[in-house]
Structures are given as C-alpha cells and as structure tokens.
Design a protein around this nucleic acid. Sequence first.
DNA 1: CTGTCGTTTATTTTT
DNA 2: TAAACGACAG
Length: 651
Amino acid sequence: MDPILKGLNDKQIEAVKAVDGPVLVISGPGSGKTKALTHRVAYMMANGINPGHILALTFTNKASAEMRDRIQNLLKRRMDMPTIGTFHSVGLRILRREIGALGYSENFSISDSDDQLALVKRIMGELEIDPKRYNPRTMLNKISKLKTALVSPESYQPKDFTEKLVAKIYRLYTDELKRMNMLDFDDLIVLPVRIFKERPRVLAKYHAQWKYILVDEYQDTSHDQYQFIQLLAQKNRNLFVIGDDAQSIYMFREADIRNILNFQKDYPDAKVVLLEQNYRSTQNILAAAQGIITNNKSQFPKTLWTDNSQGERIVVKETLNERAEANYIISQIAAGLRQGRYLHDFTVLYRTHAQSRAIEEALITKGLPYQIVGGIKFYERKEIKDILAYLRFIHNPTDTLSFERIYNIPPRGLGPSAYKKIMAVREKNIFEAVKKTTADETKPDTPLKKFQKLMEDLRQTASEKPLTKTIGHIVEKINYEEYLKTLTVVKNAPENLEERMENIQELKTVARGYDGLDPDEGRGRFLEEIALLQDADRTKDETPRVNLMTMHSSKGLEFPVVFIVGMEEGLFPHARSVYQPHEMEEERRLCYVAITRAKERLILTHTKYRNIYGTTEVNLPSRFLAEMPQDTLDYQFLDPNGDEEIIKYEI
DNA sequence: CTGTCGTTTATTTTT
DNA sequence: TAAACGACAG
C-alpha cells in the first residue's frame, strides 16, 4: 500500500484516491477532514501530478498554513508546493496579473471594512440621506450582498424606494473606489470572476495551470466564490470539495449552503464520500449533537459514529445569575486542575462577546490566566490603523479614505472645512490637491501647510529608507506617543499607552521582513499582505491559559473540556434569529458546532437571571437542551437557597 | 476647530 | 452598561 495512505480509514482512502473528476466529501466534525485533504494532495504529488497544477482554496490563512505544513511533512523529499491559499489571496494573485483588463492600474490598494463604511457614509452625506433613517452599515451590507451575488450597479433593478437609494449609493461607491484605485474584499473574488467571464483566453490560461482544484469548507462558499470555482474547474472537471453542511454557520456573511447541497446536481457524475467516523468526542457528546441537528430540515443525511467510549453525561447546570455561572465554571476548572488537567484544556464558549465579561472578571479574581480568541483583532486597533493609514496614504496618494483618517490625527487644526477645500480641487491625487490648496493660502504657517510639509518629509523618507525606519519616522514626526497619552489620560488608562506602543513595536517586527526590499516595493507588499491578514501571528508566551471565545470562532478546534454558557432562550438561540426559520436552523448548526468541540467533558450552563444591557432578564432554558437525548444529560438545578451558590463555589 | 454632553443602540465575522 | 455618534457651545 502507498505509505501515504497509512493510518487512514477506508472512507478517507476513498476520498484521497479519487483524484480525477468531481468529488464531494461530507466530513462530520472530528472525522479527519484536514487529514483527508492533506493526504490527498500529498498522494497526488507522490503519484506524479505536477504540484504546479494543483490549487487548494481555504477560507483562512491559518487553514492554508496548516495545510501547507502538513503536506510538507508527508512528503519524502522536498518538492515544489502547490498553490495553497485563501480565496482572497488567490483572487489577489490573479488580479495582480490581470487587473489591467479592467482599467485599474497595478498599484491598487485594498480597503478594509472601516474604509468601506467611511466611504458609504461620505456618499450618503453627499446625497443628503439621513443616516438615522438609513443605517450606513445596513446599506453597505446590501451593497456587499449585491456584489457577492454578482449583481453590478448596471444590472441592478431596484424595486422600491430603499432599493433605489441602495442602487444610487452602490453606483457611487463603485465609481469612487475605482477613482481611488482601490478594491474592497468582495472585489478580490468578483473581479477575477468578471475577467474570467469576459476574457476566455485569460481563463484558458488558468485552466492550463490549475488542473486540479480542492476547496476546503465548501459549505461556506458564497455565490461569487462558487462562480469562481466553477469557472476555474469547468474545463478539467477535477474538482474536489470538502465540507459539512451541518457546520454552515456563516450564512449571515453570504455563505450559501445550497452550494454544497446541490453539488451533485452540478456534477451528476460526482463521487460522494461521507466521513462519518468521529475520532474526537465521546458517544454521549456525539449523541447530543446528533439529537440537535436532526431538528433541521435541509441537510445531507449522515450518521456520526465513534469507537470512543460512552463517556460521562453532559452536565446541564442552572445558576442564579451570570456571576454564579462564572463562579461555577471556575469551580469546575479548579476541580479539573486537581485531577491533572491543564488550564488550556478548558474552553468557554459563548454566543456573544458581551458574555465574556463576567467570566473574565471571575478568572481575574481567582488569578487564573486566560486568553480571548478572536475579539479585537491586531490590525483593527486604532494605533495600528492610524500608522497603517499614514503608510497607505504615502503609498497611494489617491487613497482619500486613508487621508480622511489621518489628516487630523493627531489633531493639528484641520477640520471639515479644510477637508472640503481639498476635495473641491482634487483630481485624483490628494497630495497634489493639498499642494494646490496651500498655494492659495497667504499666511506662512497654516495647519495645512504644516501638514503638507510633514507629508513631503514622510514621503521622502518612505521612498529612501527601509520600512521599519519609515514607521519609526512617522511615529516620531507626528508625535504619536504624545497623542496617545492625551487619549489614555482622558480614559484614565495609562497601561493602555504601554500596550499601544508595544503594538506599534509589533507592527515594526512584521515590517522588518520587508526591509530588505526596495522601499516602494516592500511597502506595497507589506500593505497588501496585511490587508489579507486579520490577525498577526504574535509570538505568545507559552503559559497555559483558559480559552474564551465565541462559538463561531471555535469552529475547527477541539478541547478536552468545553463549557457552553448562556444556554437560554433569547441568547442562544439569539432573539434575533427566533422568528426566521432559516436563521433558527443556523443557530442550531452553531449549537452543533459548539457541542462537537468537546472531546471528553461538556458542561452547559444557563442562568435564572441575567443582566443584559443593565437590566435583569429572566430567561427560559434554551430549547436546544430539550432537543438533546435526555439520557445523555445530567441536570443540576438551582438550589432553592440560590444565594449560597456564590460562596459554595469558592476555591 | 475642539471638547463635552446627551442620545441611541445593542449577534455571529474565515477575508 | 457602555460605546459610539451627532449636536452644540466655547
């Protein structure tokens, strides 16, 4: 037997060996999906398929990196690696070569979601649309929805008044982005699709290159991603998709579960493999998960099974309030630690970020180290965004969004009126517009003139010095630390200042990798790369910590002991999902995902009283509890003398 | 232009 | 509860 197939079960082997033609693999939680995927790629390479002909698409950088690592480890000798990347990075790679066809210039930059929102707000301001009546965020969502549905501003047929507004904003939004030579995230998929459709010869080039295509997390693909895949795969038809419809939890982000459900319609000759053996969880945990998910209508029929032991019952614990809930969790962690578990064996999952507060407070009181996974991302921090905005404006002076961000940060006496003046005379290049505006000013040292001089100086440095030097120079020249001080003094949080300066240091560490390049090119690559990175790989210390995260961020992970807190109607399922059946089903899948993170021990908690937005709510236990087979559960109801709870759990 | 004050609103978010 | 935003006075 091929050594690469060793350690795989029959189904996994089937998935690995079906190299030619369309293949759909439905992989249950803990069924060795990544194993199947990576072994398949290694198998293909070991059997003479040119790695250059293989394209593997993932959703996250993390998944890409893991796949690359594991494939490398499977190979006997060093070989060229296939193209492995996120949808967006592969889209970007294509655009870098092909975007000329659409009339953009090649030094385009990529806007982040804050930029997008700022742009929509600006446009709505110009159109005098009341942002209270029409939420800019909602409008942006609608635009993004249209884009992912591949509806262009030209082809959009608005029906009612609101849609007509959306159409207007959408059109201006698109024009303005193009004018700034900027792309949004959606464009990284949508534009390659357009090029493929309009330029068969370009598409043919990619057909010749990528003859084998693999897609991870196929259930999460949106319509544009679906088109992207279909176009690339239509010639050779060697399309391997793997995923789990039951774990689709990103519908709200345009994931279209029909893509996976209809794969066999798209490819009637598709080979279908079900990975149903679970290597992760106890029988009880699996039974609970299965019990939940069977309440959903549309899904791929499958039954998970495991050779693992039955395991202990799932604890359903009722507590008085969220403080007692947190204390209970800590008591359970303490008990686990006494039995030899480590802090990182424990994970607390919640539906909304707001719920982490009570848990954190309890952990801090008891001095237990923890880490929040997800939450505020590195590149979303103000100090990072500020510095990056300077870099982006230096790099692309047509980027009015970055200009908008920095022209008065730190405060230098520039405001809306100065901004209007500049925008009035702008062609494309804002830096030139600033020059034009200052030319009319008679006084010698106006704030705008100072700004102009500052930017000239920064641009000079940026074009000559390595990237880290430039960053240091920016921070120094704009007196950024002083500015941060004024911010943190107001909020009375000096520890914040230190942390923020450390973050800037961290940014420099990332930038160092580009110092060796030509300054302009290095800056470009740096900005491009971090546009696609949502979190920096910061080298964390190795202290074991309790993990806290939303159920969404837990997808793909596993832990010996999992707590799911807030198992209450209104919270989980979330109140906003209850009335829409398809949203209710998504909540249920989320529950399925959360439960199946647990390997050995699962504890579900709900409270009688919960403080929410400052008012106390009385919540019923979540309906999901009733949907689990009751013989897998161990109910622990609230002691009638509820007050004692908090004391009882002291450790 | 800047800072303060009151009002509003509140999921999840791989890029 | 608290953050985020817009209105308004200095």
